[in-house]
Measured scan of single mutants.
Amino acid sequence: MFKRLMMVALLVIAPLSAATAADQTNPYKLMDEAAQKTFDRLKNEQPQIRANPDYLRTIVDQELLPYVQVKYAGALVLGQYYKSATPAQREAYFAAFREYLKQAYGQALAMYHGQTYQIAPEQPLGDKTIVPIRVTIIDPNGRPPVRLDFQWRKNSQTGNWQAYDMIAEGVSMITTKQNEWGTLLRTKGIDGLTAQLKSISQQKITLEEKK
Score class of each variant (00 low, 15 high):
53 P>C: 11
94 F>A: 05
37 K>F: 11
125 L>K: 10
168 A>D: 02
189 G>M: 09
140 P>Q: 15
169 E>K: 04
191 D>W: 10
158 T>W: 11
7 M>G: 02
139 D>W: 15
194 T>D: 14
135 V>N: 04
30 L>H: 04
54 D>A: 14
127 D>E: 08
64 L>M: 05
51 A>K: 13
135 V>A: 00
52 N>A: 12
127 D>M: 09
63 E>I: 02
143 R>Y: 03
206 T>Q: 15
35 A>K: 01
135 V>R: 03
183 T>C: 04
7 M>I: 14
134 R>K: 02
169 E>H: 02
203 Q>M: 10
21 A>G: 12
146 V>G: 03
52 N>I: 06
5 L>Y: 05
18 A>S: 13
24 Q>A: 09
137 I>P: 08
139 D>H: 15
28 Y>E: 06
82 Y>K: 00
80 Q>H: 10
71 K>A: 04
84 S>L: 11
131 V>R: 10
148 L>N: 07
66 P>C: 05
53 P>W: 04
119 I>L: 07
2 F>P: 01
99 E>W: 11
46 Q>Y: 08
11 L>A: 03
97 F>L: 02
178 Q>E: 02
94 F>I: 10
131 V>N: 13
166 M>T: 05
211 K>T: 12
145 P>N: 04
190 I>E: 04
146 V>N: 06
185 L>S: 12
118 Q>N: 11
57 R>K: 11
185 L>F: 08
140 P>Y: 14
116 T>V: 09
190 I>H: 11
117 Y>L: 04
81 Y>L: 05
124 P>A: 00
95 A>Q: 09
140 P>T: 15
166 M>D: 01
100 Y>N: 15
54 D>I: 12
65 L>M: 14
26 N>C: 08
79 G>Q: 04
163 A>D: 08
103 Q>N: 15
190 I>S: 03
186 R>M: 01
173 M>S: 00
131 V>G: 07
140 P>K: 13
180 E>Y: 04
112 Y>K: 02
118 Q>K: 14
41 R>K: 05
35 A>Y: 05
38 T>N: 11
123 Q>F: 08
51 A>S: 12
162 Q>D: 03
47 P>Q: 12
189 G>E: 02
25 T>E: 09
19 A>M: 03
168 A>M: 00
110 A>D: 07
24 Q>C: 12
1 M>S: 00
181 W>E: 14
147 R>Y: 00
188 K>M: 08
130 I>D: 00
70 V>D: 10
28 Y>K: 09
125 L>Y: 14
52 N>K: 14
155 N>K: 01
111 M>N: 05
196 Q>P: 11
117 Y>Q: 02
84 S>N: 12
172 S>I: 02
29 K>C: 12
96 A>S: 12
64 L>N: 01
169 E>Y: 04
164 Y>K: 03
108 A>S: 00
137 I>N: 15
68 V>Y: 03
147 R>G: 06
105 Y>W: 09
115 Q>V: 01
62 Q>Y: 09
188 K>N: 10
132 P>A: 00
164 Y>F: 02
82 Y>L: 05
92 A>E: 15
197 L>H: 15
29 K>I: 14
111 M>C: 02
178 Q>W: 07
176 T>N: 06
65 L>N: 04
112 Y>L: 03
54 D>M: 12
143 R>F: 05
99 E>G: 13
154 K>V: 02
157 Q>N: 05
40 D>F: 06
142 G>R: 12
98 R>Y: 08
183 T>S: 11
164 Y>L: 04
81 Y>G: 10
59 I>M: 05
79 G>L: 00
86 T>R: 07
195 A>F: 14
205 I>D: 06
10 L>I: 10
170 G>N: 02
186 R>Q: 00
189 G>F: 03
3 K>E: 08
165 D>W: 02
45 E>Q: 09
91 E>S: 13
153 R>D: 01
187 T>Q: 07
37 K>I: 07
101 L>P: 03
178 Q>F: 04
11 L>G: 01
208 E>Q: 13
208 E>G: 09
31 M>R: 01
166 M>H: 07
55 Y>M: 12
205 I>P: 08
42 L>W: 05
156 S>E: 04
11 L>F: 15
